[in-house]
Nucleic acid binder design. Structure first.
Length: 490
RNA sequence: GCCCCCAUCGUCUAGUGGCCCAGGACGUGGCCCUCUCAAGGCCAAAACCGGGGUUCGAGUCCCCGUGGGGGCACCA
């Protein structure tokens, strides 16, 4: 099985493309076939020089490595369409010679005018066949004379064309609803319809998995294959991703905004936000594909083993970021501690914290089940690397307590801790609980005051364990600081 | 406007004529656990778009509506 992922480098790489790439990759791995990366850069106007880079690093991050591609080469290169112009010309000429394509000299202005009128008359905008029946000899002369031209496909006027999609079955359309599509632009480069068909054939692609936005021109593609007399690949059109609301195609304007729950659609943004590639793969794999009625967690190896085209779902799917969070939490909790430590380390660094791996490795077990993304680790545990804490005076006052109560509780806690011979977890916890009993307050109230005093946060990793990492002296110092702050409020 | 595709809980989905008074997951609500927050456990609410057929029997097949999505470029 030979499959390909053929994006056009016109913008950032998003999860829709990632899913298409993933499915292609899975098929190749599963069958021991090849996964080809082809860059469809025939549109020089929309070309974005940074796009191919981002695409490559996104795919690598996800672990979707390709067997043949622009950087790797392979037996059917080059793998960048802009470098294959002469190949396309050869096939355009074949069509021209067969009388299945023709030169068209209409100016873009004329075409726009024609289109405009048709729309005004509420007729489908289509080419008006102005050049369709020009004599090939005359046309060739005009070409030789240097006149600007394009080449159009001579779509049959009569009959029907049936295109077979693996998920949807046969799709039959009247040829009269099809246009005489442009195959070769006036700049000498082909459009997708020609380039992709020629490449898929030459690169011996056996299964084409692509977005369902190609469904309307699918019959044209079949017609092109037929015009060349080539055997068609198996066609599979993947459903589109919809916005989380379910309204409209996934828009690329989602910003990273944790408050509103919005996330970016871009793979690299997901990486930067602290999602695990394992989670992202698992998440996108399940949008449009399922294995059975209950299995949801799939490692890459399991996906390779269990993926099947037959279980693909043709209906559009709204993306659900909270499910991504869920998967990410699961994968984070399943990580070995040292692995997790290494993964969260860069996030502390980029937050500008003076993190050291030894300390961080003691923190990791405390936060592993509390974070949904790697970035969350900084939020919950960043305070460990701050020299000082600045507790909010208001928050320092315990639940159902006055400032005086809280100050007293803190002072006594400080004394109890100071009097301890060591600083072991059990001893600290036991003595603090005893203190709470003696003071006739709940342990939770005492812990609450101390939590703010020591971590500066209302939400933190477990208090006693956190104290161990901060150290006895600093803990006592922070409690004293809190007492002082509380005293000012009495 | 024309063409094409799709249609099960809010969302992702299972379901290929009887196993379905429709299963799982996320999310939501409640309870338990609990030093906060999580995690974990238990429970709950929540769907076959509508109408016609076909059939002994339809979520499952067919038709028509409706709704949603996509496309209609010298973009892919």
């Amino acid at each position: 099985m030979r499959v390909r992922f053929a994006p056009s480098p016109t913008g950032r790489f998003h999860i829709g493309g990632a899913r298409t790439a993933l499915y292609n990759y899975l098929l190749a791995q599963q069958t021991g076939g090849q996964f080809i990366l082809r860059i469809e850069d025939t549109d020089r106007k929309r070309f974005d020089p940074s796009a191919e880079q981002e695409l490559a690093s996104s795919l690598r991050w996800l672990g979707l490595d390709w067997d043949e591609g622009p950087d790797k080469g392979g037996p059917y290169g080059p793998y960048r369409q802009s470098e294959r112009a002469d190949i396309y010309l050869k096939y355009i000429n074949i069509l021209l010679e067969k009388g299945l394509a023709y030169y068209c000299f209409c100016s873009p202005e004329r075409l726009a005018r024609v289109r405009h009128q048709q729309q005004k008359l509420k007729k489908p905008p289509r080419y008006d066949d102005h050049c369709r029946d020009l004599s090939p000899i005359d046309a060739k002369e005009r070409v030789n004379a240097g006149e600007s031209y394009v080449v159009r496909f001579k779509t049959p006027k009569q009959g029907k064309t049936t295109a077979v999609d693996l998920l949807r079955g046969p799709i039959t359309v009247d040829n009269s609803t099809l246009d005489d599509y442009i195959l070769l632009k006036s700049n000498g480069l082909p459009v997708y319809h020609l380039a992709a068909m020629v490449d898929d054939h030459l690169m011996k692609i056996t299964h084409v998995l692509r977005g369902s936005e190609w469904l309307p021109t699918f019959p044209l593609h079949v017609l092109i294959y037929q015009a060349f007399g080539w055997e068609q690949p198996t066609w599979v059109h993947l459903s589109v991703f919809l916005n989380p609301s379910g309204k409209g195609k996934l828009s690329k304007r989602f910003a990273i905004d944790p408050k509103s729950g919005a996330r970016s659609v871009y793979v690299l943004d997901l990486k930067q936000t602290g999602y695990l590639p394992e989670a992202v793969n698992n998440w996108i794999a399940l949008m449009g594909w399922s294995y059975d009625d209950h299995t949801e967690i799939f490692s890459m190896d399991e996906l390779i083993e269990k993926f099947s085209l037959e279980k693909l779902n043709p209906s559009p799917a709204a993306v659900n970021y909270s499910k991504l969070d869920h998967f990410d939490g699961i994968y984070i909790r399943s990580l070995q501690l040292d692995d997790l430590t290494h993964r969260i380390l860069p996030f502390f660094k980029s937050a500008g914290l003076p993190v050291d791996e030894t300390t961080l490795s003691r923190i990791t077990p405390l936060i592993q089940e509390r974070i949904r993304t790697l970035e969350d680790a900084v939020e919950i545990a960043g305070f460990f690397f701050n020299e000082t804490v600045e507790p909010d005076p208001e928050q320092l006052i315990g639940k159902n307590m006055t400032a005086a109560d809280s100050a007293q509780a803190a002072r006594q806690a400080s004394e109890v801790i100071a009097s301890l011979p060591g600083f072991e977890n059990d001893a600290v916890e036991k003595s603090l609980r005893n203190l709470a009993d003696e003071m006739k307050i709940k342990a939770g109230q005492l812990f609450g005051v101390l939590r703010i005093a020591i971590t500066g946060q209302r939400v933190s990793p477990p208090l006693i364990e956190s104290m161990q990492i901060i150290g006895k002296d600093e803990v006592l110092h922070r409690i004293e600081q809190a007492v002082a702050i509380l005293n000012r409020q009495i």
